[in-house]
Nucleic acid binder design. Structure first.
Lengths: 248, 248
DNA sequence: GCAAGTGAGTGGTATACTCCAATTGCACCA
DNA sequence: TGGTGCAATTGGAGTATACCACTCACTTGC
């Protein structure tokens, strides 16, 4: 049952290869160093070049490597947190080497109401579990999070309460695996009560993030509204030109 | 074989297929309607299923379709601007149905200096073309943009001046095609002079966006610092869980 | 010495085929 | 009538192979 440890030989060959390549990137190789060629990787791992390509393409999307036809595949400069990946606050902080925590956690079961209902595609009268908490990193407030999960997907969640990672609980207790999310990021300023919760001056800049998360079956699992301190947070990512758009 | 009529027969088969599928998505099909099966598409276009899959996967990444094993591929709800794509301000506004413009355009050639030099991997003494302008949408200020391009990549740019799209000029005059960019988004508030330029109250919230753009050969083409009005701008995108990370 | 040319090696695109895993609808049975 | 189980269908993962386009280091010729 336990999810077969971290970077080992989990799942598909592609995933194994990915783990190996991530090891190379984060361990042995330095930025701008060349990875083995696709053909070499294919041979040493006993897989097709296509399988290797899929893994490398994925890493390219995430900005961890860059590829140049005729030359090779190279490690990117580490610089930026990859916000193109879907992570929970817990994961996110751990990736940054910080210890995640929560303050003032409140869990309650309430009717969805018009707005939350619309976000989660529920009737306004349907019940949702509402988790409200101040998230901390190394003990310092980082963001205010209001999360809503349809009660029928996670029965008893409100009674059970939340200790650590909501995502972990959703996965392990309710077998709800979030695979995709739509996220909308706004800039705002903190009104006095929020500023106080986050321990920053009034009217400090902040991010407001709205997120609707789905599982593999495109079922809505979670709606979250978060407010992040701008002084400790930024969104960094790599974007690509898709194909031949001529329109400049 | 008979070039199945009209649908942009540009470039690779994958690109042609993509054009056709985009036509379907934006034209005939409504959200949540089913696309043809991979096998059907492969047959009717005379390509391999793998080629079809690549095109569909790409559209999946962009959030335009969603796929469910055993069921099919479906059109996503249109909702959100896909900021996962790399676009110029000009393209971006046109995509939103607005007319892009510029105010107070200043183009000058100056030494890069320490910060800009570092961003563009130049010596601080190397010259860069600096373009400063207020970008407008339907005549109203949307953002303040400061762009820097290495002078040696675009000789004479400062003298020539900018009329419309910088990206268009870079492509057509200097054959510099931007393929990738690293972007960092911060939340901030507008100090009085900036607020005045954008025509909003002082200390209004805003996005500050830093961007380093590269061409296909990973050569740095552009560094841009932009400040966007938060009341008229948000970042909306779709993110995916990459693979089976266990760490929740 | 230095520029032009060339060829091996690299990633990019595509074919043709195979098996697996999840979904869904329909036939069948209780 | 109301499940229930099976089979067809669909997307997911992979193998084996071929050829193209671009890069880059090395050779060659001046």
């Amino acid at each position: 049952m336990a999810e077969t440890a971290g970077n080992g030989r989990t799942g598909t060959k592609g995933a194994q290869l990915r783990s190996y390549l991530l090891g190379l990137i984060e361990g042995e190789l330095k930025p701008h160093e060349k990875l083995p060629t696709e053909r070499d990787l294919a041979e040493t791992f006993g897989v097709t070049r296509l399988t290797v390509r899929r893994a490398l393409d994925q890493l390219g999307y995430e900005g961890r490597v860059y590829r140049t036809q005729g030359a090779g595949t190279f490690v990117s400069e580490p610089r930026i947190a990859k916000s193109v990946e879907l992570t929970s606050f817990t994961q996110d902080m751990r990736a940054r080497g910080l210890v995640p925590g929560s303050l003032d956690t409140v869990v309650e079961e309430i009717p969805a109401g018009a707005e939350i209902g619309a976000r989660l595609a529920l009737s306004p009268r349907d019940l949702v579990a509402h988790i409200s908490r101040v998230r901390t990193a190394d003990g310092e407030p980082m963001c205010i999070e209001n999360t809503y999960v349809p009660a029928k997907l996670a029965p008893g969640l409100a009674a059970r309460g939340i200790t650590g990672s909501l995502y972990q609980m959703l996965t392990e207790t309710y077998h709800l695996k979030i695979e995709k999310a739509e996220q909308s990021i706004h800039a705002t300023v903190l009104d006095p009560p929020l500023a106080k919760l986050l321990g920053v001056p009034e009217f400090s800049p902040a991010f407001k993030v709205l997120r609707v998360a789905y599982d593999a079956k495109n079922q809505r699992i979670e709606y979250a509204e978060s407010v992040y301190r701008a002084d400790r947070y930024s969104y960094d990512f790599v974007i690509f030109r898709t194909s031949r758009d001529n329109t400049n």
